[in-house]
Design a protein around this nucleic acid. Structure first.
Length: 574
DNA sequence: GCCGTTTTCGGCCCGACTGTTTTCAGTCG
């Protein structure tokens, strides 16, 4: 069984939980958590180890953890974890997942009430036995019951555009609040993550109290979780949690930096501050008691001798080191895109004809658009067979003769069949400007088979772009088990391209895979996969993901003007 | 358990809110 980074990270997190319950040295606990977090953002550890790489060179991994990683990769498990499980009752660590319960309280619950499971905890709380414990009270007891209830409804994350639907009106509302000078979204929303767990909003006002009263009075607020003068938390009817922090104007930059995160990035920057002899918090940068910076984010970075780092990069994935070396990427912007290489029309499952799509693409500032309808295998959407595809090609010729300011390219989103062959014969594929290949079924093949399937498809002499490579649908369907390193390497050898699909549920490639593609020199195509005229607006989401993946305009295929693009495509078409 | 332009020991990011207290511990982000 292949061991993934996530498996190792999960074991380290579990060890951290169990150590906490034993009241181990908190810094030791943190070391495990840091390692788990770092591992989630790294290249495949199994492959690194197989290459003979010294794991202690990785950040947060020393002798001990390197040895544990090797052990997990070899055996799938870890003796230290089993050892801990012998000392801590099974299931106890699950209680830590309840908000409001940390290691101290869970331990008390166990030693005083012999509570080991959620069910036992619920029973004890109902019986009023929790409130009697030292340090607990009736309020805490009720909070525990509420938390158990909320825990049953599985944690929900919101796709970024969904979060935006709640965030933007709320920001407008807050801007109209008493004494509010500014209100902006920070957190993972500002970093442009694929999904947002809760919304962090930062407001500038001289006095916090009236702003908080205004905030909690918002008519979509269902629950006020906490309310202070500088920080409050509410839950909206939609289930979205919103944290609002209010700071004075001179603290805006420091607060924006701090609340934008990520946590890992912040810790790095604060540590740099310590080394430079300053203290960084959300109110500013301080030398002793004197504020030396903090009105803008730039001033905070300057205080630790760094250039401005774009929010999308702030994940502690090398941005600090790159900034030090003045090697930060000049991130791609939406205006850099010259075309879109994956769209649909009425011929299959699109909602507009090719002409309407082309006009919309032109209105979106693009100068070319490939129509890439589905192939015959997808009978559900009336996929194109050879005859219908040839008819579409004639239609495109006629359209190009007529349309000004936009060129329609001839393409297909051809199904990659289970054995890696393509769903249409070579002769017709060879008549196209580009062939976009995609997997639409048999997502559950083994890693070896799925990878081989895609490699074989890429070997086809007409293959241009691999669309939505992992097949994942956020919050719905997991990614296929794929060896992305091999696929990216193969794309480089073959001279073909990988898609970053801009549909909010896909955003596939991931940010990390974009970074890998860039490192290998494989161009990424940012496509809308548009099915309706409005869908060209989604390209912003794709560009955002590309920025999170460190891509510059030069790393993206469809930033090329049409002539250059045609040459690149031709080189893939045997 | 990790780490090092204060280096092999002694640090490890920092502040706010809640609920319990009556000056603070626990938890969270």
């Amino acid at each position: 069984m292949p061991i993934h980074n996530e498996d190792i990270a999960a074991i380290f997190d579990e060890i951290a939980d169990l150590l906490e319950l034993q009241e181990a040295n908190p810094f030791r606990v943190r070391a495990y958590r840091n390692a788990a977090r770092n591992i989630r953002g790294m290249g495949d550890l199994a492959a690194l180890l197989a290459q003979g790489k010294d794991l202690t060179e990785l950040p947060g991994i020393g002798e001990d953890l390197a040895q544990k990683i090797a052990e997990i990769l070899a055996t799938g498990s870890c003796k230290a974890l089993k050892e801990l499980h012998r000392k801590v009752p099974a299931g106890l660590e699950d209680l830590l997942a309840l908000p409001g319960l940390g290691p101290k309280r869970v331990r008390t619950l166990y030693t005083e009430l012999e509570v080991k499971t959620l069910k036992q905890l619920e029973k004890a709380a109902h019986a009023g036995r929790v409130r009697a414990l030292a340090g607990f009270g009736t309020k805490t007891e009720q909070n525990i019951l509420d938390a158990i209830g909320a825990h049953r409804e599985t944690e929900r994350r919101f796709l970024w555009p969904v979060a935006a639907e709640y965030a933007e009106p709320l920001l407008e509302y807050l801007r109209g609040g008493p004494g509010v000078e500014r209100a902006v979204a920070a957190g993972s929303y500002r970093r442009g993550r694929e999904t947002v767990g809760d919304l962090d909003i930062l407001a500038i006002a001289a006095r916090g109290k009236p702003v908080m009263a205004h905030f909690t009075a918002y008519d979509e607020v269902e629950t006020v979780v906490s309310q202070g003068e500088t920080r409050s938390t509410v839950i909206l009817r939609s289930g979205l949690q919103v944290d609002l922090r209010v700071v004075p104007k001179e603290s805006f930059g420091a607060a924006l930096h701090y609340f934008t995160g990520s946590k890992a990035h912040n810790i790095r920057v604060r540590r740099l501050g310590q080394q430079a002899g300053v203290k960084i918090n959300e109110y500013g940068v301080f030398k002793g008691k004197r504020r030396v910076a903090g009105d803008t984010e730039e001033s905070v970075f300057r205080a630790v001798k760094l250039p401005f780092i774009a929010p999308e990069l702030r994940e502690d994935r090398g941005e600090i080191e790159a900034a030090h070396k003045k090697r930060l990427p000049k991130l791609i912007e939406r205006a850099d895109l010259k075309g879109d290489l994956h769209t649909h029309s009425l011929a299959t499952d699109g909602h507009a004809d090719i002409e309407a799509m082309a006009r919309a693409a032109r209105d979106a500032g693009l100068s070319y658009m490939a129509v890439t309808d589905h192939s015959r295998r997808l009978t559900m959407v009336h996929g194109l067979d050879v005859k219908r595809l040839r008819k579409q090609l004639e239609e495109v010729d006629a359209l190009n003769a007529r349309l000004k300011g936009i060129t329609v390219l001839k393409g297909i989103e051809v199904d990659i069949l289970e054995d890696g062959s393509l769903d249409l014969p070579d002769e017709v594929l060879a008549e196209l400007d580009l062939v976009v290949g995609a997997v639409h079924g048999q997502f559950n093949l083994s890693r070896a088979k799925q990878t081989a399937r895609i490699l074989r498809a890429m070997d086809h002499r007409c293959f241009s772009i691999l669309a939505h490579p992992s097949g994942r649908l956020l919050e719905e369907r997991a990614a296929c088990d794929l060896d992305m390193e091999r696929i990216i390497g193969h794309a480089r050898e073959r001279g073909c391209f990988l898609e970053l699909n801009s549909q909010p549920q896909r955003l596939d490639l991931t940010d990390i895979h974009c970074q890998m593609a860039r490192a290998e020199g494989v161009l990424v195509s940012i496509n809308s996969d548009g099915h309706r005229v409005e869908d060209f607006g989604l390209l912003r989401r794709g560009v955002n993901q590309a920025r999170r993946g460190w891509l510059e305009a030069a790393d993206v295929l469809n930033t090329r003007p049409l002539g250059r693009l045609r040459k690149l495509l031709k080189s893939t078409m045997g």
